[in-house]
Every structure is written in structure tokens, then in C-alpha cells.
Amino acid sequence: MEHAAQVVDPFIFRLSIFVLAVFVGYFVVWSVTPALHTPLMSVTNAISSVIVVGALLAGGVANVSSGSGWARAFGFVALIFACINIFGGFLVTQRMLAMYKKKSK
């Protein structure tokens, strides 16, 4: 009997990563101390700006048609927004976390 080559759609792999990451997120976030919930929000903001990879792809596309011209423009603006978030988010988190000190004595 011949084995048919069964190819799994890459979507299923992505979905697996997604579902597992939701569970990881669930457990990791419950372990965050409530005292750090504000830095948690600012740092999640910063990391969700990893969407910058999409902005880099769109902004750097080969300029061959009017469509790619638009893609460059959208990518450029998205790149600015994402970078504001990345730098602003990580730096403001760093600033906040530097304030948390133990009893000194």
C-alpha cells in the first residue's frame, strides 16, 4: 500500500503556536505581582509593537507598481508608530521599574 504524502497546512502550525501561547500568557500573567500591573501594561504595549516586522516588510518593498508605492507609504507610517511604541514603551517601563525599591537600611 502506498502512503499518500500528507502535508499539514502551515496555518495549523501557526494556530498551535497561538493556542499554546495563550495558555503560556495566562499562567505567566497570573504570576505577575499586582504591584507591577502598570509596568505590565506598558511592557505588553512595547512588545506588541513587534508588529514592526510587518512595517519593515511593507516599507522596504520593491517599488515596481502603484500598489507597492502605497505599501511603502503605509509601511513608513506604521514603522514610525511602532517605533514610538517600542522606544516609549520599553523606556517608560524601565523608568517605572527603577523606582521600585526595597526598604533601605
Partner: peptide
């Protein structure tokens, strides 16, 4: 967007941030 790009960093982050919020 991570699914569109097939980018695992984006998918993982999206899931983390989504569940965190």
C-alpha cells in the same frame, strides 16, 4: 497580523498581550 505574516514572534506576542489584557 502575525498569522498573515506567518511570523511566530508576532503570533506569540499577540497571544501573550491578548491574554494579559
Amino acid at each position: 497580523i502575525g498569522f498573515t505574516l506567518g511570523n511566530s514572534a508576532l503570533i506569540i506576542t499577540g497571544a501573550l498581550v491578548g491574554s494579559s489584557g
